[in-house]
């Protein structure tokens, strides 16, 4: 009993520090944000008062909410689909122990270790009006005029989708490569003996076996894109005409440019709820699928 008790309390001071820090820098901010969302708090005012659900009423009438939500969902869906499809394809293509393929895998994973700021700066030099993509296209005679990759709402949205996917493909590829390597080779042998073709082997052996990898890769893609900020800040600054602002970008704008903490907290609660719903439903759905297979 005494050893059991000691084991409960011996490290308690250190655990206490960690829990206090976590409470201060994660749990309290969540509570505080929730409370603030019902006030008109602002750093420019000495006092703030309770305004009920006004911030939420304003939020749901704010066209900026629907614009940023629409943009966010477009990016989330595009990036999740593209990076998982291409990540899986890359993993299948590069899944071999030989040295050539090891080098290729090393190269493909590099985008994931770069910061979003650096990735966005590199791509900006490619996508700029007088950037490297336009100069290449023009010198090859493929276009006469420079394409405004970041200058129109549609193309800028597309460009952001491509750049974000470029980073997440790298991540998905590693997850799928590791999943593929965990599939026992006897299963392939057995399927081959049974006369299963390549496509059928993929559908009936590979795909079910990598289901946990799908769950991980899809969920992390969703969470990553829902909080997208740095690539947008560098690549387009939210423009043109505010068309590439994500929900997270909108939140930061309202909080730190407009200095409306009450309103930004309401946006924060909305973003938190959206993330929770998306994350839990995706893991729930995919886990169920894992079980069925």
């Amino acid at each position: 009993m005494s050893t059991r008790q000691r084991s409960r309390w011996g490290l308690a001071p250190i655990a206490g520090i960690a829990i206090i820090l976590y409470a201060a820098f994660l749990l309290w901010p969540l509570v505080s944000s929730f409370v603030t969302s019902f006030t008109n708090s602002s750093p420019l005012k000495a006092t703030s008062s309770f305004v009920g659900a006004d911030n939420y009423v304003e939020l749901f009438q704010d066209p900026r909410l629907y614009r940023t939500l629409g943009f966010t969902l477009v990016v989330v869906v595009f990036v999740t689909v593209v990076s998982n499809a291409l990540g899986l394809l890359f993993a299948l293509l590069l899944n071999s122990p030989s040295r050539n393929y090891r080098v290729m895998r090393t190269l493909v994973f590099i985008p994931q270790v770069l910061s979003g700021v650096i990735v966005a700066f590199i791509w900006r030099s490619v996508l700029n009006q007088n950037g490297l993509l336009n100069s290449t296209l023009q010198s090859m005679g493929l276009t006469d005029e420079a394409v405004s990759w970041l200058g129109t709402p549609e193309l800028a949205t597309f460009s952001i989708c491509v750049v974000v996917s470029w980073m997440t493909i790298a991540f998905s590829t590693v997850v799928y490569t590791a999943s593929l390597q965990s599939v026992p080779s006897e299963l392939y042998e057995a399927a081959r003996v049974d006369g299963a073709g390549a496509l059928s082997r993929f559908r009936n052996v590979t795909f079910p076996m990598i289901a946990p990898g799908v769950t991980i890769s899809v969920t992390l893609c969703l969470i990553t894109t829902l909080k997208l900020y740095d690539i947008i800040a560098v690549l387009t600054g939210g423009g043109p005409a505010n068309s590439t602002q994500s929900l997270a970008f909108f939140l930061v704008e309202v909080a730190f440019t407009e200095n409306r903490f009450g309103y930004s907290s309401a946006i924060a609660m909305f973003l938190l709820l959206l993330t929770a719903v998306v994350a839990y439903s995706s893991t729930g759905l995919l886990r169920r699928r894992e079980a069925h297979l």
Binding site: S33, K227, L251, A255, A268, T275
Partner: peptide, 8 residues
């Protein structure tokens, strides 16, 4: 998301 807790 980090933006949610940043201002507090």
């Amino acid at each position: 998301p980090p933006q949610v807790v940043l201002q507090p």
